[in-house]
Amino acid sequence: MTAVAGRRAAGFQYVRLAVLILFVLIFLIPIYVLLVTSFKPLTEADPGQAWNLPQTWTTEAWRVAWEKLAPGLWNSVLLAVPGSLLSCALGSMNGYVLSKWRFPGADVLFTLFLFGMFIPYQGVMIPLVQLLVGLNDLTGLDGVFYGGIPGLVLAHVVYGIPICTLIFRNYYVTIPDELIEASRVDGAGMLRAYWSVVLPVSGRPSPW
């Protein structure tokens, strides 16, 4: 009976493996057609020849696509990288203050931060445009805040602060208060304790 059960289990494993391979092939079919078509000249880009390999291999389509997409991709980098870094930096400092430097109204302030996560984008579009236009007029930098990358970075930073504050605050709560107290005994102030104690452990899993 044990041998029969073992053969049945092995047969079931083979069937399951065959089904998984079939699903993988089905998943890869569109990717195959996409890649093969991308190396074809325009004269061969026909639905009736979608499965056929190119008769003439060319990277012209890749070159044209890169020329069209490169400006937008670079703008995305200019937007996403500064916006993410600034949101993380400000959220880290907010989380540190709300978790380790308690003050009257800290819980209320933290709740207000969380409300920022649930404000729909549609509800602030008009005030946001008015703010960016006002910043253009105030600074005299036409096309910088409204109609420029810095304005989009500012908007993304403001919207990223609540979620970053929540993440860092929940992490910093797990850091023992004794570490902060020990830094105070050594003469470290609020910023020094953050820079020398809290910030170095922000990029690693919590050992506590």
Rank of each mutant, 00 (worst) to 15 (best):
T2M: 12
A3W: 11
G6Q: 15
G6T: 10
R7Q: 02
Y14K: 06
V15A: 14
L20N: 11
F23K: 05
L25Y: 14
L25K: 13
I26C: 09
L28N: 00
I29R: 13
P30S: 08
P30T: 05
I31P: 01
L35M: 10
L35V: 14
F39L: 07
K40I: 03
T43W: 11
A45L: 07
D46N: 13
P47C: 02
Q49K: 09
A50P: 07
A50T: 13
T56Q: 15
E60Q: 15
A61D: 08
K68T: 11
A70N: 04
A70H: 12
P71G: 08
L73I: 02
S76M: 13
S76R: 08
V77Y: 14
V77H: 13
L78V: 10
L79K: 13
V81H: 09
S84A: 15
S84C: 13
S84P: 07
L85D: 07
C88G: 10
A89F: 15
L98E: 01
L98C: 04
W101D: 01
R102P: 00
F103H: 06
P104V: 05
F110Q: 12
F113P: 01
F113I: 03
G116C: 12
M117K: 15
F118K: 07
I119F: 11
Y121G: 06
Q122D: 04
I126N: 07
V133S: 00
D137R: 14
G143Y: 05
V144N: 03
F145W: 15
Y146Q: 10
G147K: 06
V153N: 12
P162R: 13
I167V: 07
Y171W: 09
Y172H: 01
T174P: 02
L179G: 01
S183I: 00
V185H: 03
V185A: 06
D186R: 08
R192P: 06
Y194R: 02
V198D: 02
L199E: 04
S202K: 02
S202M: 05
P205K: 07
P207S: 12
W208H: 01
